[in-house]
Design a binder for these strands. Structure first.
Lengths: 249, 249
DNA sequence: TATAGTTGTCTATATCACTAGACAAATTTT
DNA sequence: AAAATTTGTCTAGTGATATAGACAACTATA
């Protein structure tokens, strides 16, 4: 329920262990802003009572979050919150990674993890308005803000038109800047489809997430002002660190 | 990765049982359209080999999905897919439940589960532009399409202006129709914030989900054409059955 | 009718998840 | 200094999860 405190309910024999459910709820609670930075978490015994589990189970949950860098435990003192509120990532007609997070972070950039030239799959071809099998460049990238990974994306561009964009991306660390080199001064978000799922193994590694984490998936097509598709992309955002704010298109 | 087959990877000792991870992946695969309706799932031994687990573990996953009504197992024949592709729920300036799903379903309506008059919480008050504590009506609703639950929402309205809207909702089964009774012929989506999390106990029950299921959460404000807020809402969509399509605002 | 392929059931065993209790170690408060 | 509070570590027992293998029951096909 909104406004009220959330139901701290956990399910037994659900296929998801109790410690992971508790870790998820604590994470959600932190992301929702229930704890200030450096604030102390309730003591283990209190959490155990609240969730109706053994103290050791709570300790497993906390251990997972410590491992993930969300909490810091100090013997004799307590357990403290390290991470911040969720970033709010705006999505609209002029969705840009860097400008969108301005004001919320002091630094952000995009890292190119890998790139390849490949024939367009059905899905990519449709998005870019090309024939299936046309050569396209795929860029695998990670968005970082203040050193924390906040997005993981694959994006596709027509290979002929954007030859060498991988090198340019490495140099500029920005999609917008890279496209400028190819004469694209402005582009618009034509369509966005959102879904959510559990992070797969590659996302877990690239986004530094724990197994069972949830990712928001945005599949988008960017076009030039006159409507020609230039980029097809699938971006995964860690739901525990990012929320998406839809702005006017 | 898009276009290619997804990494069928499962994680051991992750806090999520193997059978649940496999169930999630099968569900995702069905929702993505990898199986036609009534198509046969690969045999249990094939799935066990693909995921590198025992056949009994696969059977646990299938049993969960049968329980959920997604699959139907027939001894001697095979296991068959019952459910369809994900519904695509459009979100834009004129987001309406019923019209949005037209063409994808033959029938849809909204069921009022509960209602209450309460003082506005901080969050609700901000959304509606009222003073905190002002009396508001909260409607708890479920959206259904072809008899399947596709959304679960709480929505708030100023109590004074919309007295009796709960009864009207029950009668009309539509938000749009109900607001018409109060002289609202048109309304616009002012803002939408999206996130994702695991479904809590009440959502599991209302949406007929299995523990561990993911919900997309949309928090929105609807306003009259001249900009006055009339409704604040939080809607949960089961990620396995619904995707959100952002349209022009 | 026989055979191959599939789901359903049973037994047994090992590992992980959870509970229970006790006490140590570190910190803060009295 | 002593007491209270909190996290850290250890042992032991129970139930859920996963593996392994065998065979029954049912269906479709050669």
């Amino acid at each position: 329920m909104a406004g009220q405190q959330r139901a701290d309910s956990i399910e037994r024999r659900s296929g998801v262990s109790l410690w992971r459910q508790i870790a998820d709820q604590v994470l959600h609670s932190i992301a929702a802003g229930d704890f200030a930075e450096n604030a102390a978490l309730p003591p283990e015994v209190a959490l155990a009572e609240r969730y109706g589990v053994n103290r050791h189970t709570v300790r497993s949950a906390i251990a997972a979050l410590v491992q993930e860098g969300v909490l810091r435990a100090e013997q004799g003192r307590g357990t403290f919150v390290l991470s911040r509120k969720r970033l709010s990532y705006p999505i609209g007609a002029r969705t840009r990674f860097s400008t969108g997070l301005q004001g919320q972070t002091s630094e952000r950039h995009i890292v190119l993890l890998a790139s390849a030239i490949e024939p367009a799959s059905q899905r990519v071809a449709e998005g870019l308005g090309l024939a299936k099998g046309t050569e396209v460049i795929r860029l695998e990238t990670r968005g970082e803000a203040d050193g924390r990974p906040v997005s993981r994306a694959a994006s596709w561009y027509e290979a002929k038109r954007f030859a060498g964009i991988d090198a340019v991306m490495t140099e500029t660390g920005s999609i917008t800047a890279s496209l400028k080199r190819f004469g694209i001064d402005d582009y618009l978000r034509q369509s966005t489809v959102l879904s959510a799922r559990h992070a797969d193994a590659t996302d877990l590694a690239a986004l530094n997430l724990q197994p069972g984490a949830i990712v928001l998936v945005a599949v988008a097509v960017n076009v030039t002002p006159d409507g020609r598709p230039i980029q097809f992309s699938e971006t995964r955002f860690p739901a525990e660190r990012v929320e998406l704010k839809l702005s006017a298109l």
